[in-house]
């Protein structure tokens, strides 16, 4: 699968693999037709037994580049299945089965979905999608605001590339880069940041540090 270049060819190979798994399943059972109840565990087992190191990369590659119309079809289904299987393996905890997808996985799925459906005229989703985007905008806006404000003091100092952000919980300015996640110290909440920051600006003495 890794050898193939086009995402389409990769999916064709994936389908062949799934077919041969089905084939060996029915060769060892009385039934000949299987649903996802049986297939997913088998696929997971096969993945665990095989040593395909590039699979995660290839799966991501296909998910990003496959034609959106194909994502609705059989190729899309088995791609989803392999994604699910990989997720199951990577998040496996022996004793307690996770009830929900992790927040990161949900986030990345949402982002992926947004990326891939941009061109698709999907009337029924568009309203929903727009609200998500607006929220994300506001959030980024707020955090950018903090950065820009923090940037103001930088007139007094020489650093240009380095940005500061204000962390509410530990009440300190911190150095940071423009990555979205690193704007707040660990799990500190961004609530009320601007307000506190404004107060902070008035205290010139504290700025001496910067």
């Amino acid at each position: 699968m890794h050898e193939a270049y086009s995402p389409d060819k990769k999916v064709q190979i994936l389908l062949k693999v799934c077919k041969s798994i089905y084939h060996s399943m029915s060769a060892n059972a009385t039934r000949t037709v299987f649903g996802a109840d049986d297939f997913l565990p088998c696929l997971t087992w096969v993945l665990l037994r095989s040593d395909v190191v590039t699979l995660q990369v290839d799966t991501d590659y296909m998910m990003e580049l496959l034609d959106p119309t194909q994502l609705q079809g059989e190729g899309g289904y088995y791609l989803t299945t392999i994604y699910a299987s990989l997720y199951y393996i990577s998040s496996f905890q022996p004793r307690l089965p996770a009830r929900q997808l992790s927040v990161e996985a949900q986030h990345s799925l949402n982002q992926w979905h947004r990326r891939r459906t941009l061109h698709c005229e999907q009337s029924r989703r568009s309203k929903h999608r727009r609200t998500i985007r607006r929220q994300a905008c506001q959030e980024r806006d707020r955090s950018l605001h903090v950065i820009v404000q923090a940037h103001c003091f930088q007139k007094h100092c020489t650093a240009v590339k380095v940005k500061y952000y204000f962390c509410v919980r530990c009440k300190k300015f911190r150095l940071g880069v423009l990555l979205h996640k690193s704007k707040y110290h660990n799990k500190c909440t961004p609530i009320d940041t601007n307000l506190r920051l404004n107060k902070f600006i008035t205290k010139q003495s504290t700025l001496e540090k910067f």
């Binding site: 996802a36 997913l40 699910a84 199951y88 998040s91 089965p97 997808l101 799925l109």
Partner: peptide
């Protein structure tokens, strides 16, 4: 897949 251990995969 309906088994309880695969419940988390639902959203996918």
């Amino acid at each position: 897949a309906g088994q309880e251990r695969f419940h988390a995969l639902g959203p996918i």
